[in-house]
Design a binder for these strands. Structure first.
Lengths: 354, 354
DNA sequence: ACAATGCTTGCAAACACTTTCGAAATATTT
DNA sequence: AAATATTTCGAAAGTGTTTGCAAGCATTGT
């Protein structure tokens, strides 16, 4: 195991000796001067890394002022991300932490130069990084891990992996609760409009939905399960497809509120009514659910809490604490509003098959 | 006029000589060590101020890394602020600026210790401050002005004052356009549901509304003008009041989209329909307008542009540039959707009551 | 009362880095 | 090939910080 050269903390001259150059040259490398040959620069940088050298200025920046944390939000500014942001800012205010917010499209995030990014975070004394519904490659995560920058992901798209911490909600339980609510109202033909197939949270919701059906002896129909994306457009398209079926569903469980909104629009467009002709359940519990007509029954995620939890986790990790678990799930809650009702065609003998 | 002692930029020894102490002592004062007598500390600090000394680290912090700008958003996370935030983050990414976002309730902002706040901003190397729909006292603004921290306010609540720059929209023109649109559809009885009486932007919208009426020879009725706040709740209450009038308006111009949403709900609650029974125009042009049914005709503010403009202004001011004007207004645009139509009883001369 | 002890305070000197400037090596032009 | 320009690096000279010590002062013990 590579150890620091000696007990004495490394100093510029130490690095210079190891790299076989003079102290000023090391200084130039650290400060990014351009009058250093590439080969020399590399040698110095290796020595720098080997000794774990840290300039006094870096040490000072690290210990002075309020802690700073980076937050990267998926470029699309949705109500969903706004809620999470609110939670984070809320907690940040009480903990005297500054939050540096950046908006990055997933594609941009992917081809970002993570080495440089991580380096810059170290130099600016950032304590950690919170990502919202984003995914990073293993190399990217390593860049941060190598520099001891904790990374916490909210609602990760990929399954929990080693090296980062994630915060989510009980998606499976939420999906099951939504489905059982519809079943208890008497629905049998329940469809699911999920998010991206790759999204872990969407898959969990789907499985919760399937579990809910099976638990009540209802077999799932493949034509009732559509996966696409978390968007209003997908809600429109999905509803169109489902309602055109020979035997359309009497209830739709949408993977997120925006999708539900799309469904609502398509349903209205056809002159049908919610919840009379179709029951509709959303997911997320964004303020949106209060603004639609009828107000949307939805599985609420504690988005603000999730933001708070993520920040708390980052700060703890930054202080070297170990967390009990690298993934935590906060409880969802089914909020019943006005978009769900018993199915219209309940002409089957009153005996609901429960 | 107090001038720098000489052409040579002040150095630690200069300060020490002026204060009559040694260089290490000055260093201790700067770094807040405690082994300096209070009297000595005061003398050194005076010399420091007199010479305007700045340590190399401060200079470095000021010039190194991406610029950092503070952004304070009114605590309530609305679609409105989300749009502005998006615009700011967007531009920040292209300019390599880090945005430190804080959420502060207006009350908290008011009793914040501005001296300390400003000082901390200087120490953390913040380039400037952007406020969204907030107001600051003159003393607070002075704290920042004294430290050369530019402050830009988006949609300021108070009228433009000396010492800060503001970004807004053509509220008057927008109010006039909305009103004239309704008049051109044949409406005569048009009500206005404004925001807080103190809000400059709301007053401008009101005057635009009045100008629109007068320009077409329609006299304004006091009972048709209600001012309250920018909220859905006020929309509900205001609509209730207006619709209970002996001669209710045939169109309502709401001061913001959220208010319009409240109106919509109250109108529906009474079994009336928009736009058949009542035309409705909102203000802001948030995504909300696309989500309602019917989609809301609204005076769109270029919120993202406003965010961008604010950041651009801060960065310019931070570089010592002079702006052409301390207040800029971006153009609003009336976006006609489905919530406005000719009044139902347009042609009936007498029986105008329903 | 006076010495002993301990605490505060500020400086000289040693340190840790940065900057400047020029010498040597290398590349480019004439 | 010579002259000239460019690159690269380190010695020397800043600039600011830390250490250790000595002088001054107060408190305590005899």
């Amino acid at each position: 195991m590579r150890e620091a050269r000696s007990k004495t903390k490394p100093v510029l001259a130490t690095v210079a000796a190891l790299a076989g150059v003079s102290a000023p040259t090391v200084s130039k490398v650290i400060n990014g001067r351009d009058d250093v040959a590439e080969s020399t620069r590399a040698r110095v940088q290796a020595a720098l890394a080997e000794l774990g050298y840290e300039s006094p200025m870096q040490r000072r920046a690290r210990s002075t002022g309020p802690a700073m944390v980076d937050l990267v939000i998926d470029g699309s500014a949705t109500q969903y991300s706004m809620e999470i942001l609110t939670g984070i800012l809320d907690y940040a205010a009480t903990e005297d932490v500054d939050v540096v917010v950046g908006s990055v499209t997933p594609a941009k995030l992917h081809r970002a130069n993570h080495e440089e990014w991580a380096q810059r975070m170290v130099e600016s004394g950032r304590k950690g990084l919170i990502l919202v519904t984003s995914e990073m490659t293993t190399q990217q995560l390593d860049s941060f891990a190598n520099r001891n920058i904790p990374v916490v992901v909210i609602d990760p798209l990929n399954p929990p992996r080693h090296g980062y911490t994630s915060v989510g909600a009980t998606n499976w339980a939420g999906g099951k609760a939504a489905t059982e609510h519809l079943i208890s109202l008497g629905h049998q033909r329940i469809a699911f409009l999920g998010g991206p197939r790759a999204a872990e949270c969407s898959v969990a919701r789907l499985h919760g939905y399937l579990a809910g059906l099976m638990g009540h002896g209802i077999s799932s129909r493949p034509e009732y399960v559509l996966v696409g994306e978390f968007s209003k457009a997908f809600g429109l398209a999905g509803a169109r497809e489902l309602l055109d079926l020979a035997e359309p569903p009497t209830a739709i469980f949408a993977g997120c509120d925006a999708t539900a909104l799309g469904v609502l629009e398509e349903v209205r467009h056809r002159g049908l009514r919610v919840p009379d002709d179709l029951s509709l359940v959303g997911f997320d519990g964004t303020p949106l659910t209060e603004q639609t007509l009828p107000r949307l029954t939805s599985v609420a995620q504690p988005l603000q809490e999730m933001g708070r939890a993520a920040l708390r986790a980052v700060l703890r990790l930054a202080q070297g604490e170990m967390l009990d678990s690298s993934h935590m799930e906060l409880a969802t809650e089914l909020v019943i509003r006005d978009s769900t009702a018993p199915p219209r065609t309940n002409h089957v003998p009153a005996g609901s098959d429960l």
